Amino acid sequence: MSNGSYTLVYNMLSLGIASMLFTSIFLFVARERVAPRYRMAVMVSGTVTAIAAYHYFRMFDDFKHAFGTDGMGVVAYNVGYRYVDWFLTVPLLLVETVAVLALAATVQRSLLNKLVPAAAAMIALGYPGDAQLNLLYQGDAPLWGLLSTIPFLYILYVLFVELGKGLAGQSEAVQRKIKELRLLLLATWGVYPISFIFNMNATGFDEGGFVLRETGYTIADILAKCLFGLVIFTIARIKSAEDDAEFAKTEFKK
């Protein structure tokens, strides 16, 4: 790998570690700044970024091991770290989205029963193609990418259609933030298949495809986990103020 490519991926992974770690610290420290019924959503957000921080440490070390010694990339880089991270964090991202709305228990259960299995299926189906395991036949990455897209589209349907039905009882401010969250997910999750495609047709090691994939994945992760978690925290603050006038007076005093 060239020095420029190595430096770019090295710095992006370092940025991922810093972003995830310090977002986690902030969310755990700031959880007392929301009402008790919304703290679970904030804690889940902090857990998501903490899990991601751990896996970014692992990816960082693996990257240095694979490319840092002689620059030849003779040791395979393990993309599985990303997929283990996503397998844990993507369902949790959806859990925190539903939890922060404080919907009726039956509605929450119905949404999560649809979203969580679909998220797990999306990640599980994407891994064989991204890792180029060729489980079915040589060059089967496009098939795995297509299969992974099916639960992805179902998740979007649930978020934009079924979750939308539960927003009727929310304030205008909360509805606006939830719409922003959904658009953020759509925009960031859209980066993943594009980055997947960059490396999909590579035979052996393709430096350009690898760099684009790792850079794209890292930027999308930071937006989909750190920024997403901070928006969840903002929603929790808004709803806390709406529920408790004393809280609003204390936390939002001018």
Score class of each variant (00 low, 15 high):
51 I>V: 15
198 F>I: 00
245 A>V: 13
103 L>E: 05
179 K>V: 00
173 A>V: 04
155 I>P: 01
115 L>D: 04
143 L>G: 08
161 V>H: 13
57 F>R: 02
164 G>A: 10
53 A>K: 07
53 A>R: 09
243 D>G: 10
204 G>C: 08
228 F>R: 09
145 G>H: 03
35 A>T: 07
232 I>M: 04
223 L>H: 06
144 W>H: 05
29 V>F: 15
98 V>C: 11
126 G>L: 05
129 G>E: 02
235 I>V: 13
98 V>D: 02
9 V>T: 06
45 S>C: 07
87 F>D: 07
248 A>Q: 10
226 C>H: 02
238 I>S: 04
45 S>G: 14
83 Y>W: 11
84 V>A: 07
216 G>K: 06
244 D>G: 08
178 I>R: 00
103 L>G: 11
183 L>W: 15
10 Y>H: 12
240 S>E: 03
66 A>W: 03
70 D>T: 14
158 V>Y: 07
182 R>E: 04
46 G>F: 01
17 I>P: 06
33 R>N: 13
113 N>D: 06
83 Y>R: 02
184 L>G: 00
72 M>F: 09
246 E>L: 12
134 N>C: 06
74 V>M: 13
74 V>L: 14
193 P>Y: 04
32 E>Y: 15
151 P>W: 00
231 V>R: 13
35 A>Y: 09
229 G>A: 13
179 K>H: 11
193 P>R: 00
185 L>G: 04
245 A>G: 09
190 G>Y: 10
218 T>Q: 03
240 S>K: 04
244 D>W: 15
182 R>C: 01
76 A>C: 05
220 A>Y: 12
38 Y>Q: 06
109 R>P: 09
176 R>A: 10
55 H>G: 03
54 Y>D: 02
64 K>S: 01
32 E>A: 09
156 L>P: 00
160 F>K: 01
251 E>V: 07
189 W>S: 04
168 A>T: 15
98 V>Q: 07
